[in-house]
Design a protein around this nucleic acid. Sequence first.
DNA 1: GTCGGTCGTCGAAGCGCTTCGACGCCCCGG
DNA 2: CCGGGGCGTCGAAGCGCTTCGACGACCGAC
Lengths: 337, 337
Amino acid sequence: MSGRAAGEQVTIADVARHAGVAASTVSYVLSGKRAISATTRSRVLASVRALGYHPNAGARALASRKANVIALVLPLRTGMQVPVVMRFATAVVTTARRYDHDVLLVTADEGPSGLHRIAGSALVDGVLLMDVELEDSRVPLLRELSLPGVLIGHPADSTGLACVDLDFRRAGELCVEHLAGAGHRRIALLGAPAAVYDRGTGFAHRTRRGVLAAAGRLGVEAVTRPCEENPAAVRRDLTALLADHPDITGLVVQNESAVEPVLSTLPTLGRRVPQDVSVVAVCPDELAEPSALTCVPVPAEEVGRQAVTLLMRRLRDEPVPEVTLLEPRLTVRDTSR
Amino acid sequence: MSGRAAGEQVTIADVARHAGVAASTVSYVLSGKRAISATTRSRVLASVRALGYHPNAGARALASRKANVIALVLPLRTGMQVPVVMRFATAVVTTARRYDHDVLLVTADEGPSGLHRIAGSALVDGVLLMDVELEDSRVPLLRELSLPGVLIGHPADSTGLACVDLDFRRAGELCVEHLAGAGHRRIALLGAPAAVYDRGTGFAHRTRRGVLAAAGRLGVEAVTRPCEENPAAVRRDLTALLADHPDITGLVVQNESAVEPVLSTLPTLGRRVPQDVSVVAVCPDELAEPSALTCVPVPAEEVGRQAVTLLMRRLRDEPVPEVTLLEPRLTVRDTSR
DNA sequence: GTCGGTCGTCGAAGCGCTTCGACGCCCCGG
DNA sequence: CCGGGGCGTCGAAGCGCTTCGACGACCGAC
């Protein structure tokens, strides 16, 4: 670059000298916090470009008490929903950059002490918490630390927090409306594992509620049952379900790991898809698309974007809604009619 | 917390006052850069704990000219092995924390200017570059910026850099050696999507080269072909492959999303596994293990750990080897004989 | 007993930036 | 023609930390 050995920092003083103004003027040009004449501004900007100036992040953070960095706390266990996490992370980084922020990657296994450290050292201005459990130990901590945070998913008590999530109730409704619209009168929800309902996990309950509500409203007979996660169990549960209710023609699946087994098991039970049974899932689109599965995708990108946007608003001390639910969309493919 | 309103920073001066020493003494206790008497040390440490002190990251970075942060530049394109990336990222964060560093997530789509910004603002001390292509534009940039960096994968010219990677060439050889040892004389490599080869991504090319080299050496006839990522395409490519070369008895698969489709398609083409066709994959072990697939696992954790370790060494200006290749191992399971 | 050398601690000087108050200057109203 | 008020710019004071040089105190060697 111009005139400086590589590795030498170009400072604001260099820019000021080059432009023939005071350092504070450069700062004001860059931040826009005071009026600056057009001529001065353009002169300064020219110098900035000529010297390849980038403000020193540490100095800026120290003086302004803003790191311009947010933390993304990712779940420790990386199971099935890995691709979703990835897409989500991408959306977060991209969106954060639009707000001139960077993203610090924190793994949940550092636990609460990680949050303490990050808050205490002013490394970040705010936190995005993924994989929030109903009773999450990090949630009260977040409140206590008065660290601005946004949660993905939502805990039992979301008072004073900001949560973003897909509107799973509406997602359940959408599935049923789609099936009912195609003439189905007897349907079933093959849901999350029983343990998930027992824990009272939000998304599972809300989906079920949505399914039942829409079914009632539309005069559709609906049964719901939990479903375990391993392929053998899925096969067993599905077989039992169809034995108990042989006249079911519509299936809503909300269980990532059940999708494939369901699709491969149905034909062996004498049910062609979609001629005999229509299948609709609430699952990541990556999972559905290769199988041409009709589904309500979990919009990872949109959630990421929203989460960052909300966090930025909180950082500016603007009020934000406690709960933000994203409107689900249904993508019709080949497994339903 | 003790005695401070939430959100108030505890500074080194607070600790010094509380312990009855000078601020610099606190600093030296914490950094260990000068000898401190045992009594003073323990008094200071007690105060640190009592007040819940965490050094301000910005101030520390400014004064020490070290951010204690490294950047992880992730590829976020198609054709990437997503779960591998995830595990890799986890390993990087965990290892970095062991060296008292944090990890900044940077997406490759910010491109070279992102590296410029990060280097110029002293946001990070060093960079981990994933998904390095044979001719990668970021590589010369890294050299020019004199930003300490470690590459995952390796470019054509690795002079003056540090690269870590699985020895994919050797992985390819291993697969062929295994098949040849079992008596197979006609084999095929079902590889990454064509776009990946076109991009000049190292691992794909090197694996292919290894396969061909070992085949030549061992008198095995080998054909290679790219393979797209969706199940339908895999089925099509595989069918075409076996139509063109019906006498193939060994298959090397290097494509995460092709593994399942290949295994489920072969029987429909009248090929039992492993009686008629042996299948060996280069893929994450998570993917291979449930299907009892013989494979050469990609050791994501180990690569991540090594990469961070190398970067830390570079940050201390210690010499590091230009290329670090991890020795692949072949895990024999049920799909080959 | 005296002198040099550690050892342990301190104070002060920045690191590069933001921000606050001050201060010309120019324009307008009286 | 003079005074008041923006507007545009400047200088200086930190932000919280590290690090350098200085300096007592204490020790062993002579």
